[in-house]
Amino acid sequence: MDTAEKKTKVFSMVTTTANNKSEWIYTVNHRNSFYRLQRIVAYVLRFCQKQNRKPTAQLELEELDQARRVIIKQIQETGFAHELRHLRKRPDQALDRKSTVATLPLILDEHSIIRVETRLQQAPVSTETRNLYLLPYNDPVVKMMLRKLHEDNLHCGHEALRGIARQQYHIIKVNSMIRNVIQGCVVCAKYRPQFFKQVMGDLPEHRVSQNRPFLNAGVDYCGPFWIHHKVRGKRTDKAYIAVFLCFATKAVHLELVGDLSTSSFVGALQRFIGRRGRCQILYCNSATNFVGANNQLKELTDTIHSETAAGSIKEFCNQKGVQFKFIPPRSPQSLDGYVRVVDVKTARGTYKRTIHKLAPLLRETATKRKIEADDTESNSQEDPGIEDTAEPESK
């Protein structure tokens, strides 16, 4: 008979000895996971107690809780060694004033773990909530515990994580540690991106030059505004506002326009020149910030930006000695955005508060005399666009 060959298995084990007995917890290969560290300690305790040594046996909840208590105890022996010796030898005496926890009501439980008494001794809550575990500041294992609470509670914020942690632990400088944990979370960092901060360019020449008001200005439209007449059966009329902005002083001049015709815009420009004087350069913002739907935007485009309307406006400006410039849309390098949206919004809000006064203003604008810059043109024709929308006042 052939002798049965005996197969032997050789196991190798590496053991390390720490200088301090409480530092062995920091030598465990936990891969930056507190749950993994807790399971490793639970298996070590099972092996030491000689119970259920089967490698396939699942850990019980009591074993995980016992492992968590052992971890906390080892952390306290490293961070609060002096306080532990004092509480074991002289529990009735106060701690040294130099201690960071001298003002806290500390006690030792049945497992020789330092706890902090709270004011919830009569509350129907668990013992861990009445007496919190004391944990030191800037400990790597404590950071892993906070990170686990942060991930288990759906990556909650600073205040929520602090409230959850204080249900079981009293951590020294907890706000600083929570801030460090949240800032180091990769998932939270992805949903909290740092946007690129664009450097502001230099101010244009017209913005920094000392000139009289409205020597260099820009114009933009806002509207429409619906004017309701106090006449039964009278249909409501639409009106617009031409916003003229001075580049040097940021002053705003508002002109009421009856419709979107070219003649109405020229009339508003005549009244503006008559009131504020001639402009050297007048910019028109041709971006898509003209308020309204597509049909209104098309009407405004046909009013000012069409070839026929642009020719008429430039011809009138040339007669007045005003250089009229159309700016390409969305081009800040071409002085776009001079007529700010905030000025248009401010003008719109102001007129909305006094919308009931727009109808008399519209009628008054249609009948008032146009003030011209040149004395020779003082008796020019009135604006036909506004005259069409005028309605005599009912008696």
Results as ranks from 00 to 15, higher is better:
Arg166Gly: 07
Leu135Thr: 06
Asp152Thr: 07
Lys197Glu: 09
Lys190Ser: 11
Val186Ser: 11
Glu128Gly: 14
Pro204Asn: 08
Gln168Tyr: 09
Thr127Pro: 12
Val142Trp: 01
Thr129Ser: 15
Glu128Gln: 13
Ile182Asn: 00
Tyr169Asp: 07
Gln121Pro: 05
Ile164Phe: 06
Lys143His: 11
Asn131Ala: 15
Lys148Leu: 15
Lys173His: 15
Ser176Cys: 00
Ala165Gln: 01
Lys143Ser: 12
Pro124Asn: 15
Leu149Cys: 10
Ile178Leu: 11
Phe214Thr: 02
Gln122Tyr: 14
Met145Ser: 09
Ala160Leu: 05
Asp152Asn: 13
Arg179Ile: 06
Ser176Asn: 13
Leu146Arg: 05
Lys143Cys: 10
Gln122Met: 14
Ile178Trp: 01
Lys148Cys: 10
Arg130Trp: 14
Gln122Val: 12
Pro204Gln: 01
Asn153His: 14
Val208His: 03
Leu203Ala: 00
Asn180Ser: 15
Ile164Leu: 06
Phe196Thr: 04
Gly201His: 01
His170Tyr: 10
Met145Phe: 01
Arg207Cys: 09
Asn211His: 14
Tyr191Gly: 04
Val181Phe: 02
Val208Ile: 14
Leu149Trp: 09
Pro193Val: 02
Ile172Met: 08
Leu135Met: 14
Gly157Thr: 03
Val181Pro: 02
Glu151Pro: 01
Arg192Pro: 02
Arg179Gly: 11
Leu132Asn: 11
Tyr191His: 13
Tyr137Ile: 09
Ser126Val: 04
Gly157Val: 05
Ile171Leu: 04
Arg207Val: 14
Val187Asp: 08
His155Ile: 01
Cys156His: 02
Tyr133Trp: 14
Gln194Pro: 00
Pro140Trp: 10
Val174His: 07
Val199Cys: 01
Leu161Glu: 05
Gly184His: 04
Ile182Gln: 03
Val174Arg: 02
Met200Trp: 06
Pro204Tyr: 01
Gln168Ile: 12
Cys185Glu: 08
Ile171Tyr: 02
Ala189Thr: 08
Val187Ser: 09
Cys185Ala: 12
Tyr169Ile: 08
Lys197Gln: 11
Ile172Gly: 03
Asn180Thr: 11
Arg130Ile: 11
Glu128Asn: 15
Gly184Phe: 00
Ile182Thr: 01
Leu149His: 05
Gly184Leu: 03
Glu128His: 12
His158Tyr: 10
Val186Glu: 06
Pro213Asp: 07
Asn211Glu: 14
His170Pro: 00
Lys148Pro: 00
Gln122Thr: 14
Asn138Phe: 12
Phe195Val: 02
Arg192Lys: 15
Ser126Phe: 07
Asn138Pro: 10
Phe195Ser: 06
Cys185Leu: 05
Ala123Gln: 13
Ile164Thr: 07
Ile171Pro: 02
Arg162Tyr: 04
Gly201Gln: 06
Arg147Ser: 12
Ala123Lys: 15
Ser126Arg: 11
Arg147Asn: 11
Glu205Ala: 11
Pro124Ser: 13
Leu149Lys: 08
